[in-house]
Design a protein around this nucleic acid. Structure first.
Lengths: 234, 234
DNA sequence: AATTATCTAAACCAAAAGATTGAGAAAAAC
DNA sequence: GTTTTTCTCAATCTTTTGGTTTAGATAATT
């Protein structure tokens, strides 16, 4: 939970000088905020983040020089625990989706009332995600669409369900690129037994070689047995 | 946009008889709603949906008999344009994620005030997505986590960049599970030439067989040159 | 002009993979 | 208690794949 006795440290990144000044003024009006930096340059912004460790980074996503999306990723990959709130002129579904996917904690449209921006900062500072209702809908429609396309990978029946427990174990090792000898060693059975299993797998998956078996597995949601515990059978 | 002159047709599915009665009473209090059905059985619910074509389906996701998630999917696959709002006792991240992924338009906790339920119905009926702030945060944290895991696919250097044009073409066919003979036919070159290319690919990708070459390609963002593929399995 | 990278191809060998048949033992299902 | 499934293993054979070397023909680079 946020510490209300300290001022929130905010950093601004926006390539438009007017916006930058405007937002800075707006935020400075709030006594509980402290603008630790404001820059028009994304790369400079990155070093300011490292230097000042702001609680919130308010960033314009539509910057011509550096790709805003890439900047979000860089910030979150740096390991610094700061919260990125996107400021954007566009309510483009794909843009919202990708920004959130890369770790943005909030997304605010420039056309929105300035009180919304304060709302967003408060919400995100409180550890929550801020997305206006309209953008939430946009996001989910995009999300559900791509989910539907992905699920089309396995439209009909899934032949993987016909595999036995042991066959699943063998297939698991096949998808790791291990050969007969290696599989035999790992499962502590003979190589010929592995061959038998593999041939049975081929028949069930209706393929003719291991490469196609692996491809079938990967494109039909095969779950590696790293999750399921099997009898260890000392 | 919603037609406010007509009553909203709502269908309830909840295996708990008390909840079912309670929610029905609650909604009936609102004059703008019309409860067209209320059932404790998911399968029965599906046929009621086909029969009455409700605007909103309020469904409990925690049903012992039939899997609630599966029911959402069935509803949305049926092609009927109804909006599913999930009623759940749990704010489990994975559950929220999967429900929304399968096409739910709203998610309400049973512990929430009843006014929130009305809010949700109104919002969803208006074509928008309803997710309470807390659940939005839960959802996105789960979403961003899985996105981060996926992006770890290609962390270090990518050996794929060292491949020549022809080698890329060969690898492309390899990732389709095609053997030497098939590749030779498609590229109209001899089988031995294909072998040469494949061996060069192995050296560059530092693998010893085609299965591992394919696995390397798939896990390092290999972009197939042609998206058109016809035969699924040989 | 000389070098380098790429694409092509052959020959040969070794190793691995795949196909088939048969069969015993244990567990699960009926 | 019998039947079925699953897991195990062997032997044999064919096909495919992988490893290596060598080398000609272009095309691009220096």
């Amino acid at each position: 939970m946020r510490d209300f006795t300290k001022k929130l440290r905010v950093l601004l990144i926006d390539d438009n000088a007017n916006h930058l000044r405007g937002i800075k003024e707006l935020i400075s009006l709030e006594t509980s905020y402290n603008v630790v930096g404001a820059t028009r340059n994304a790369n400079l912004g990155l070093s300011l983040i490292k230097k000042y460790r702001p609680d919130i980074v308010l960033m314009d996503i539509n910057m011509p020089e550096k790709d805003g999306l890439q900047t979000i990723q860089t910030i979150n990959k740096s390991g610094i625990s700061t919260n990125v709130v996107i400021l954007s002129g566009y309510d483009d579904s794909d843009l919202i989706y990708r920004a959130m996917k890369l770790g943005a904690r909030g997304y605010v449209l420039k056309t929105m009332a300035s009180s919304k921006l304060i709302d967003a900062i408060e919400t995100v500072a409180d550890g929550k995600i801020y997305l206006p209702s309209v953008l939430t809908t946009r996001f989910f429609e995009y999300f559900q669409n791509s989910a539907r396309e992905e699920s089309n990978i396995a439209p009909g029946e899934n032949l993987l369900t016909t595999l036995t427990g042991r066959e699943n174990e063998v297939l698991d090792l096949l998808t790791q690129g291990i050969n007969y000898k290696g599989i035999a060693q790992q499962l502590i059975i003979s190589e010929t037994t592995v061959k038998t299993h593999v041939n049975n797998i081929f028949q069930k998956l209706q393929v003719g070689d291991r490469t196609n078996a692996v491809l079938y597995a990967l494109t039909h949601g095969f779950k590696p047995s790293s999750m399921q515990a099997e009898k260890t059978a000392a």
